[in-house]
């Protein structure tokens, strides 16, 4: 009998001994957000939450139709700068998001950032999954429900990761630690 073993990858940068970087809060704030028709997924999520001073959150996009949707996948990086690289945007057309998760955080420069992965049904009827390009995907004619969990006191900020050579969201705050 052969025991299955996971395949590990060697990343281009130095190994970081901190394997789990975590932040926690005594409670979360929950909001039911409706994404506004006609807006980009990015704007429909960022603007109403910023008005309520929420800039860092974990969200679940329950389901809904999009007027336009673009996504990408992550095959091996042909230039070998990292182990993977995002593909060019794939046009899913008038797609339906079956289920999605998105993290709201901030870029290195402090601007809003939405990192979203989802299962979608494309206009051609194919069920696909990948990284949603939130700035180019337009909410369809009906509002889309989102459950927002905001972690009070923890900032989710993009930072260049030396190990993977990719800029990644990481938690920062008084209670965050490795």
């Amino acid at each position: 009998m052969t025991t299955k073993r996971p395949r590990l990858l060697r990343h281009p940068g130095p190994f970081n001994p901190v394997r789990i970087k975590a932040g926690s809060a005594t409670y979360g704030i929950h909001i039911r957000l409706s994404l506004k028709p006609g807006e980009t997924l990015f704007d429909a999520m960022v603007k109403p939450l910023a008005e309520r001073n929420i800039r860092d959150a974990s969200t679940t996009i329950l389901r809904g139709a999009f007027e336009k949707m673009y996504y990408c996948v992550a095959p091996p990086d042909p230039e070998k700068r990292a182990v993977i690289a995002y593909s060019k945007p794939i046009d899913a057309g008038r797609a339906y998001m079956i289920f999605g998760n998105a993290t709201l955080g901030r870029t290195v420069e402090g601007e809003p950032l939405v990192h979203c992965h989802a299962v979608i049904r494309t206009e051609r009827g194919e069920v696909k999954g990948g990284h949603i390009i939130t700035e180019q995907s337009i909410v369809g004619s009906k509002p889309i429900s989102v459950l927002v969990t905001s972690i009070v006191g923890i900032e989710l900020r993009q930072a260049y990761d030396e190990e993977t050579h990719v800029s990644l969201l990481q938690p920062y705050g008084e209670e965050s630690h490795g």
């Binding site: 990858l9 394997r19 789990i20 809060a25 005594t26 182990v83």
Partner: peptide, 23 residues
């Protein structure tokens, strides 16, 4: 009832399931 909330970034080559248990 719900209690505390934790957010984590788990690093490469760690296992998904065991990583959540370690968190």
């Amino acid at each position: 009832r719900m209690g505390r909330v934790a957010y984590a970034r788990i690093a490469p080559n760690e296992d998904l399931v065991i990583g959540i248990e370690k968190l």
